[in-house]
Simulated scan of single mutants.
Amino acid sequence: MSGGRAPNRSRRWAAEAGYILPLVVVMCAIFVLPIALMLARSLFDPQPTLEYYRQLVESSVYLRVLMRTMKIALITTGVCIVLGYVLAYWMRGLSPKGQLIAATLVVLPFWISILVRTYAWIVILGNDGIVNRTLLDIGLVGVPVAFLYNELGVIIGTTNVLLPFLVLPLFAAMLKIDDRLMDAAASLGASRVTIFARVFFPLSVPALAAGAILVFILTFGFYITPAVLGGGRVPMVANALDTLINQFARWELAAALSGVLLVVTLAAFALSRVVGGRASIA
């Protein structure tokens, strides 16, 4: 019997490998190979070297760009966490029809170009925009408020673009939380605050961590919104890469900066896995 099972198992594994192998080849060709070539360009000249990474560390310009990018990414992620969690929790409490309408409104921005949505903020927040005209008309300010071409404008625009990436998976995870768990806690005398803090919130943390890390990674490599709403005054990593490649042709230095971006992304992903794992265990 065991001798007959082994060939069948081997054939099944071979068949599964035949299905998976083309996908592995495509993934390696599209994703792994370009990243490997990029890292190789930053580490070989043609001998192994860390010269380009040393230049990044010793240059105050690139350090400021990295720190500014990290700052904006963290603030944007924090704002998205607060707004996204409140919005997803509110959507969960709606009727099925209300949930469908709310989810449609959250998805609706995906149908509009990011460039169009970014330029729309100039109309809203510009010196002659809707917000400033309103503030001036009601007398709250005497001169237009500088919402744009600074870090505040970049954070506002980036939050607007990336908020759905946190809300949608978090809302889907919240819908899967069994209401009977809250009912059981209530039957044992727990208050609504205790039920939320000890039952509901811990169950939603893995999805929250996954959404937060997605927002952080996308913000860290964002280009369009910082370029438009920053007006060239708020350079981030993606903008620095564009300058190094298209203006200065410093491919090796750009590859080293991309390597730093990759390391930060992997570290953030690992942190989210740890947070999500601990929350699941708890």
Rank of each mutant, 00 (worst) to 15 (best):
F171L: 13
M38V: 13
V199Y: 03
F248K: 14
A88E: 02
L140F: 15
L162K: 01
G259P: 07
F110E: 05
I245R: 07
S59R: 04
S2I: 12
L63M: 13
I177T: 05
S10R: 12
L94S: 09
T159L: 11
N246E: 15
A209P: 06
E151N: 12
G4L: 13
V228Y: 00
L66I: 11
V24K: 01
I138R: 10
F222N: 01
F165L: 15
G142L: 04
F147P: 00
L170K: 02
A270C: 12
L87E: 03
R54E: 14
I195L: 04
V234D: 04
E16K: 01
T104E: 11
F222S: 02
Y53S: 11
I30P: 07
L262E: 06
I101E: 07
M91D: 01
V26P: 05
Y85R: 05
G142K: 11
I112Q: 13
Y19T: 08
L208P: 03
A186T: 04
V193Q: 12
W121K: 03
G211T: 04
C80W: 00
S10Q: 15
I35V: 14
A186M: 09
M236S: 01
G142S: 15
I138T: 12
F110G: 07
Q247A: 14
F200K: 06
R64M: 11
A172M: 12
L83G: 07
Y89F: 13
R54N: 11
P22F: 02
F222T: 00
L170M: 09
W251M: 12
L108E: 07
V107P: 08
A146R: 09
L105M: 15
L162H: 03
S113H: 08
A88G: 05
N246Q: 14
I122K: 14
P22Y: 05
S258T: 13
W13M: 10
R92T: 10
Q55C: 02
L148N: 05
E252Y: 05
A190V: 01
I281R: 12
G153H: 08
Y52M: 09
A255S: 15
Y62N: 04
V86N: 07
I138K: 02
L115M: 11
F222G: 00
N127M: 09
A102C: 10
